[in-house]
Structure formats: C-alpha cells, structure tokens
Deep mutational scan, measured.
Amino acid sequence: EVTIKANLIFANGSTQTAEFKGTFEKATSEAYAYADTSKKDNGEYTVDVADKGYTLNIKFAG
C-alpha cells in the first residue's frame, strides 16, 4: 500500500491537501478522479508530478 498526496491549488490562492491510499495505480486514479470532480467548480487543472509520482500538485485555472 502506498499513499499519494494531492496538493490542490485553487485560482484564489487557497490550498487543500488530500491523501489517497491503495496500490500506486488505485491511489493515483482516485486522486485524478477527485480533481475531475473538483473541476466543475474550479475550472480546468494542470498537474505537476513530484516525488516520483507520490505527490501531485494540482493547480486549477479558476
């Protein structure tokens, strides 16, 4: 089991951190699914992958 950390960075400057656990593939998939659901309210996003994929910096356009 691994933990994927997602740092969500919103257009207004606020941030949120979420953690997803499971296999690398499952946790990563859940992090992207979470970003997709947040996209409806926060606009399109880009992802900067860090820490060999264990940290995702997800920046929303607003």
Rank of each mutant, 00 (worst) to 15 (best):
E1L: 13
E1H: 12
E1K: 10
E1N: 11
V2F: 06
V2A: 06
V2T: 06
V2I: 11
V2R: 05
V2L: 06
V2H: 07
T3G: 03
T3A: 06
T3H: 06
T3S: 08
T3V: 13
T3W: 06
I4T: 00
I4E: 01
I4N: 00
I4H: 01
I4Q: 02
I4P: 00
K5H: 09
K5P: 00
K5A: 05
A6W: 01
A6F: 02
A6G: 03
A6C: 15
A6Q: 02
A6M: 14
N7Q: 08
N7T: 12
N7C: 12
N7I: 15
L8E: 00
L8S: 01
L8P: 00
I9M: 11
I9V: 10
I9N: 06
I9A: 05
I9P: 00
I9S: 07
F10K: 04
F10W: 07
F10R: 03
F10Q: 04
F10T: 03
A11H: 09
A11N: 08
A11G: 09
A11L: 08
A11D: 06
N12L: 04
N12G: 07
N12T: 07
N12D: 15
N12R: 04
N12H: 06
N12A: 05
G13L: 06
G13Q: 06
G13R: 05
G13K: 06
S14H: 13
S14Q: 13
T15C: 13
T15V: 14
T15N: 08
T15A: 08
Q16F: 12
Q16M: 13
Q16Y: 13
T17R: 09
T17W: 09
T17Y: 12
A18T: 11
A18H: 14
A18L: 15
E19G: 04
E19L: 13
E19S: 11
E19I: 14
E19K: 08
E19P: 02
F20W: 04
F20P: 01
F20L: 02
F20S: 01
F20I: 03
F20K: 01
F20G: 01
K21T: 14
K21M: 09
K21P: 03
K21Q: 10
K21I: 12
K21A: 07
G22I: 01
G22V: 02
G22H: 02
G22C: 02
T23V: 07
T23E: 09
T23Q: 07
T23W: 06
T23F: 07
T23P: 09
T23D: 08
F24K: 08
F24G: 02
F24L: 10
F24H: 06
F24C: 08
E25F: 07
E25H: 08
E25C: 11
E25I: 10
E25R: 07
K26V: 11
K26D: 13
K26T: 12
K26E: 13
K26F: 11
K26M: 12
K26I: 12
K26P: 01
K26S: 14
A27V: 04
A27E: 00
A27C: 06
A27G: 03
A27P: 00
A27D: 00
A27S: 04
A27Q: 01
T28G: 03
T28I: 14
T28E: 06
T28K: 08
T28V: 13
T28F: 08
S29N: 12
S29V: 10
S29I: 12
S29P: 01
S29G: 10
E30S: 08
E30M: 13
A31M: 03
A31E: 02
A31N: 01
A31L: 06
A31Y: 01
Y32I: 11
Y32A: 03
Y32S: 02
A33G: 08
A33W: 09
A33K: 12
Y34H: 07
Y34F: 14
Y34T: 04
A35F: 12
A35T: 02
A35Q: 01
D36F: 05
D36K: 05
D36I: 05
D36T: 06
T37W: 14
T37V: 14
T37H: 14
T37Y: 14
S38D: 04
S38L: 15
S38M: 15
S38K: 15
S38T: 12
K39D: 04
K39V: 14
K39I: 12
K39Y: 07
K40F: 10
K40M: 12
K40G: 12
K40L: 12
K40Y: 10
K40V: 12
K40R: 12
D41E: 14
D41W: 14
D41P: 05
D41R: 10
D41K: 12
D41H: 13
N42K: 08
N42H: 15
N42P: 03
N42T: 05
N42D: 05
N42S: 09
N42M: 10
G43M: 06
G43F: 04
G43W: 05
G43H: 04
G43I: 04
G43E: 07
E44C: 13
E44Q: 10
E44M: 10
Y45P: 02
Y45T: 01
Y45N: 00
Y45G: 00
Y45F: 07
Y45Q: 00
T46W: 10
T46C: 12
V47N: 01
V47G: 01
D48V: 13
D48L: 10
D48A: 11
D48K: 09
D48N: 11
D48P: 00
D48G: 08
V49A: 07
V49I: 14
V49Q: 07
V49K: 08
V49R: 07
V49D: 03
V49F: 11
A50I: 12
A50G: 09
D51S: 03
D51Y: 03
K52I: 05
K52V: 06
K52A: 14
K52W: 12
G53N: 03
G53Q: 03
G53T: 02
G53D: 03
G53H: 02
G53E: 04
G53S: 03
G53Y: 02
G53F: 02
Y54I: 05
Y54W: 07
Y54Q: 06
T55P: 01
T55A: 04
T55R: 04
T55D: 03
T55L: 09
T55C: 06
L56A: 01
L56M: 06
L56H: 03
N57L: 08
N57G: 03
N57S: 05
I58W: 00
K59E: 07
K59Q: 10
K59M: 13
K59R: 13
K59P: 01
K59Y: 15
F60K: 00
F60M: 03
F60L: 02
F60T: 00
F60Y: 12
A61F: 14
A61K: 13
A61R: 11
A61E: 13
G62A: 09
G62Y: 08
G62W: 07
G62I: 08
G62V: 09
G62Q: 10
G62R: 07
